[in-house]
């Protein structure tokens, strides 16, 4: 989901896990309106990652990651195992990081923990709200690559919100372009690059200015 600040990307995301309810119309998750779901059950089926991780500062990394399994009543052994598995998955050594607190980690490490937490209970859906926005370019690039691998491997449905067209092109199967509260385009990255839509064109121009357009897709 691509668009400028204030165009309604985050609002759309929050409609999906019912942090907000629609004032008109319906949002369907797995064929069922969000208002017809039990909100707690709905949210536990949806992993949620936000900028800077939104980690609980008073929980250790292990407790942050294991939160949803614990809420869902998993046994302690199974939760601990899952936490180690996930920390390894996002590239953090469990022995070094499990007992630390979020404030002792760098921004990139916190972001990895945020992703691990969202994946903990193996939810079929993932929502990501500018997860890589606050990182330096190098960390961002490496996390983006890893994340692309991860979603392919795990086979999750993910909606990722960004205002960075490059990030959208790298990660997305389909790009939804939002403008002033409207979804103006929903296309694959290839079709997005050749679109006539004036907003899409404006985004593509920013890439050309920087000489970064990938020749293969043109």
């Amino acid at each position: 989901m691509l668009g400028e600040s204030g165009c309604g990307k985050t609002t759309t995301l929050k409609l999906v896990n019912r942090l907000l309810t629609p004032s008109a119309g319906h949002v369907l998750v797995e064929g069922k309106a969000t208002t017809a779901w039990d909100p707690i059950e709905l949210r536990r089926r949806i992993g949620y990652v936000i900028q800077e991780g939104g980690l609980f500062p008073h929980f250790t990394i292990a407790r942050n990651v294991g939160l949803v399994p614990v809420l869902s009543g998993w046994e302690r052994e199974r939760t601990n195992e899952r936490v180690r598995e996930l920390l390894n998955l996002v590239g953090l050594d469990p022995d070094r990081f499990a007992e630390r607190y979020p404030r002792e980690l760098s921004g990139g490490q916190r972001q990895r923990v945020g992703v691990a937490r969202a994946l903990a209970a193996d939810p079929p859906l993932l929502l990501l709200d500018e997860p890589f926005g606050a990182l330096d370019p190098l960390t961002r690039a490496s996390l983006q690559r890893e994340f692309a691998d991860l979603t392919t491997r795990l086979g999750k449905t993910a909606i990722l919100v960004t205002h960075d067209v490059r990030e959208a092109l790298i990660l997305a199967r389909r790009i939804g372009l939002m403008h002033k509260g409207q979804l103006v385009l929903l296309e694959t990255p290839e079709r997005f690059l050749s679109s006539d839509n004036p907003q899409a064109k404006a985004y593509i121009e920013t890439l050309e200015l920087n000489g970064e357009v990938d020749g293969g897709t043109q």
């Binding site: 896990n17 942090l19 707690i40 059950e41 709905l42 949210r43 536990r44 949806i46 949620y48 936000i50 900028q51 800077e52 939104g54 980690l55 609980f56 500062p57 939160l67 949803v68 809420l71 869902s72 937490r117 929502l127």
Partner: peptide, 11 residues
Amino acid sequence: SVREAAVAMGM
């Protein structure tokens, strides 16, 4: 954001 994350985790 912390409170929202808590709600979004299904608390």
